[in-house]
């Protein structure tokens, strides 16, 4: 906190005022710190400290009551052998691989459709954004009803289409994950649509006009004008979506709670179960660390790729 006044290159002031200037700078620094303190203290206490502590706790055995006991790599050896971890890791990747591209495609399509002057465009934009601000519990309950294998509207519709044996959705282990992914896409696409809309509106219309004059058709204009101009937005959306998908928790907990069986058990849920429910904070931290490394690796890879594309 008592940072020395930064060395600023400025014409040497008369020696008489140096002292008061310095104290002025220090005072300003302190004042600045005190302004961010309420927010920063909360962040540090509730986020930063626990996050940093995870790195230490992962190497211990700790049930939140006792003193942590250092166990070296035990938790990680266990992680490698744990069937639940393998299932959760697979499911998390499954969810991400399904959720990210589908949400990107859906939100981009929505943005393109609603990025024009048409009657009631504000209404449609609001409608598309609505799922995002709807309570996740309500979303889960209603979608579960829609997915009901015997009486649900989705399967009733599929039956009238002539499908003989419609999927069991959330009550069938092989369909539960696709069902959750679909719900996730529906819920998130409105938010990313807004981001894409903002991106689309920064594209200068001259570019499209020039392309049109050159004889480019709509699809060519989309590929060669819209998409390249959208790259910063696309990249941001990709990163946010990937991180969000890897740490999916609430949607799964309220929709299937990992079931049926372990077919939708994801990593963040395993972390919660091991730590908060079973009181094994050491092992739970090790799982959290594994998830962190996974997200970090994927994000770094995406950054590197983006850099290469930009240059």
């Amino acid at each position: 906190m008592a940072a020395p006044a930064p060395p600023v290159a400025r014409p040497a002031p008369p020696s008489a005022t140096t002292y008061s200037n310095r104290s002025q700078v220090r005072r300003n620094t302190l004042l600045g710190w005190s302004f961010i303190l309420p927010n920063f203290a909360g962040f540090a206490l509730l986020t930063l400290v626990p996050v940093v502590a995870t790195f230490g706790i992962a190497f211990t055995k700790w049930n939140a009551y006792s003193t942590p006991e250092f166990t070296g790599l035990d938790n990680f050896t266990r992680l490698v052998q744990d069937g639940n971890f393998r299932v959760a890791l697979f499911n998390t990747v499954y969810y991400t691989v399904g959720h990210v591209p589908l949400t990107m495609a859906a939100s981009l399509l929505l943005a393109l459709a609603l990025n024009r002057k048409l009657r009631g465009v504000a209404f449609f934009r609001t409608a598309a954004f609505f799922p995002y601000i709807t309570s996740i519990v309500a979303v889960a309950v209603v979608w579960n009803m829609l997915y009901n294998p015997t009486q649900g509207p989705i399967n009733q519709f599929l039956l009238t289409l002539g499908l003989e044996d419609p999927p069991g959705w959330t009550s069938d282990p092989s369909w539960a994950m696709p069902a959750v992914i679909l719900t996730g896409v529906w819920k998130d696409m409105g938010y990313y649509m807004i981001l894409f809309l903002a991106g689309l509106q920064t594209i200068p219309p001259e570019l499209h006009e020039a392309a049109k004059v050159d004889g480019a058709n709509a699809f060519q204009r989309f590929r060669n004008v819209t998409l390249p101009c959208l790259r910063p937005t696309t990249f941001f959306v990709l990163i946010m979506l990937t991180i969000g998908s890897f740490k999916v928790f609430d949607l799964i907990v309220v929709m299937t709670d990992g079931g049926p069986g372990r077919s939708t058990l994801v990593l963040s849920q395993l972390i919660y179960r091991e730590g908060i429910v079973n009181g094994r904070f050491g092992y739970s931290s090790a799982v959290a660390l594994a998830l962190f490394l996974l997200v970090l690796a994927v994000t770094v890879a995406q950054y590197t790729r983006n850099k290469r594309l930009e240059s």
Binding site: G168, S171, D172, P173, G258, G259, P260, G261, R262, R273, V277, N278
Partner: peptide, 20 residues
């Protein structure tokens, strides 16, 4: 107990949904 209960519950779902 808690861990066993978790396993039994997961397998219970598989039987009751007719998945296995």
């Amino acid at each position: 107990t808690a861990q066993v209960e978790q396993v039994l519950t997961e397998e219970h779902q598989l039987i009751m949904t007719g998945s296995a």
